[in-house]
Simulated assay, not measured.
Amino acid sequence: MSHPLHLATITTILALALFGFTGCAMSDGANFHKNSTERSYRLEVVPSQNASERVRFLVLHFTAIDFETSLQVLTQPSNSPVSAHYLVPETNDPSYPYDELRVFQLVDEHRRAWHAGRSQWEDRSQLNDHSIGIEIVNKSNCQPPPESSPGAEPDAVCFFPEFDPKQIDLVIALTRDILTRYPDITPTRIVGHGDIIPHFKIDPGPKFPWQKLAEAGVGAWYEEEAVQRHLALLDGNTSSDPESIRRRFALWLADYGYGIDPETASDEEISLYTRAFQYHFRPWKADGEVDNQTRAILLALLEKYFPQKLSGYFVGGGEGLVSSD
């Protein structure tokens, strides 16, 4: 990424990559199967009811680099090729060549972009096969941890700048447009890269305004009243040991959609997935600790979006919400 494009070159690429929100979905038999060449056989179209959309998830990323370099990385061949369906620039980026912000479509929605990696959400892995990816220009980055005393494991030093409000408005408009075409993308299936592969990724990071998106009808968020209600129950439970609390929380994470195995997950994995959850839903304190507030937020989300899964838990003996097994 050390050879930035000249403005003339990038303008050419932009002309080729400019977005069009055409969904390309076929709606009738006449358009079901098109081919520009003459066929040597007769084709009868009988649409099957036993099919579903490829797209089930929406994955949001930050680029960690400026617009010009992002566009180059996402569209040009390399030793480690990566792409996304859309790229959203930010205001006051010197490498951005236009006065107003535009959305750039880089891959057709019905094609597979390479943005999610070895990921998992719900019962699906390799989310490139099932998702639309949106890259958002933001120069968040993490540096390797400083040297420390033997035995210590310091965290990387991360810098998370605020997202541009005009850019976020554009992201909301884009995502709402996408949702009109893919009803299978439910609120809990709008996720960050860090949600689906927390071992290696943290984007879009703790500064991404998930709550604002949810208030605009994009993605999931909890009800504060439910959080306080669950928090009161959890604070009243003093009988559970820390290990069973962490293991139970891993179960709740899996119930929500995170790709963690609650039975085999190591203590480190539980912390990683907990931090990923906190980046999304409690960004002001993303420390990986399974405390009662984090637990209450997750229970409030399960109550709102997966109430049937709460049948595996119960309130017993005034000790709070515990596992039924």
Rank of each mutant, 00 (worst) to 15 (best):
Phe104Ile: 09
Leu71Thr: 07
Tyr222Phe: 14
Val227His: 01
Leu302Cys: 03
Gln293Ile: 15
Ser125Thr: 13
Tyr182Lys: 07
Leu233Tyr: 10
His280Arg: 15
His230Met: 01
Gln143Trp: 04
Tyr305Asp: 08
Asn35His: 15
Gly194Met: 13
Pro47Phe: 02
Arg112Ile: 14
Ser240Val: 15
Asn50Gly: 10
Phe200Thr: 12
Asp28Asn: 12
Ile185Ser: 02
Asp291His: 03
Ile172Tyr: 03
Ser83His: 06
Trp284Ala: 15
Cys158Glu: 05
Gly236Met: 01
Tyr98Thr: 12
Ile197Asn: 14
Ala296Pro: 00
His115Met: 15
Leu127Trp: 10
Asn128Pro: 04
Arg124Tyr: 15
Cys158Pro: 08
Arg295Asn: 03
Ala30Pro: 05
Val107Ser: 07
Phe160Pro: 07
Glu100Gln: 10
Asn79Tyr: 10
Cys24Asp: 15
Cys158Met: 05
Asp203Pro: 01
Pro150Ser: 13
Pro97Thr: 02
Val107Met: 11
Phe281Lys: 01
Lys34Glu: 12
Phe277Met: 03
Arg56Pro: 07
Tyr182Ser: 04
Gln120Leu: 08
Ser271Gly: 12
Leu106Met: 05
Ile197Met: 11
Asp325Glu: 12
Phe159Glu: 11
Val107Ile: 14
Lys201Phe: 07
Asp93Ser: 05
Ile10Val: 12
Pro77Ala: 09
Asn141Gly: 12
Tyr256Leu: 02
